[in-house]
């Protein structure tokens, strides 16, 4: 049992590691695009038309994937009053309950995120004219990661070791 839990946690953290660098890359892309946009408008006198849309889509991906990553390492903002009032055992139970609620949320997002992505497939984005699915797919992708991380958080709580490290 412990071995399965450990493998699960290691697997999820491996994916998280990749996603962490993917987010760094998205952030770099956004910075380059918007700097280029200002440069093009003033120096080249010929504005960019796609930069804003690509940067927005990147932000949406960054948000959805980043939420999952931040959740795993306890960085999401939460009101942590109750856990402090409880004993150690009850605090662990509460942590699992919170993770189950998060997993339920992720499942709903996953299901309806997939549905919406499928529906917007034929729709094109105004500036880049790519499919709007490029935007909406961030939802099921992020939801799947939140779900995986919720499982890892539960697995962590069931193991004797303390908190995960990023």
């Amino acid at each position: 049992m412990q071995a399965v839990l450990s493998a699960l946690v290691r697997g999820v953290d491996g994916v998280n590691w990749l996603i962490g660098w993917l987010m760094a890359a998205l952030m770099a892309v956004m910075t380059v695009l918007i700097s280029w946009q200002v440069f093009a408008r003033y120096v080249m006198g010929d504005s960019l038309t796609f930069s804003e849309e690509v940067a927005r889509f990147s932000t949406v991906w960054l948000t959805m994937l980043g939420a999952a990553y931040a959740y795993r390492y306890g960085a999401l903002i939460a009101v942590e009053l109750l856990a402090g009032l409880l004993g150690r055992r009850m605090a662990i139970v509460l942590k699992i309950v919170v993770a189950l609620a998060s997993a339920a949320f992720a499942l709903i997002l996953l299901r309806h995120g997939l549905a919406i992505t499928e529906r917007v497939l034929p729709q094109t984005a105004p500036s880049t004219r790519v499919s709007m699915a490029w935007l909406y797919a961030a939802m099921p992708a992020g939801a799947a990661m939140i779900l995986l991380n919720a499982l890892a958080v539960i697995a962590d709580s069931l193991r004797p070791q303390p908190e995960a490290q990023p």
Binding site: G20, W21, M23, A24, A25, L26, M27, A28, T59, L62, T63, M64, L65, G66, A67, Y69, A70, A75, L76, I77
Partner: peptide
């Protein structure tokens, strides 16, 4: 730089996910 970019992205996601 890569680590600063990543950490900034995570902090941003913390705020932006609440906005969503």
């Amino acid at each position: 730089l890569p680590a600063i970019l990543r950490d900034s992205a995570i902090t941003s996601a913390v705020v932006l996910s609440i906005i969503a």
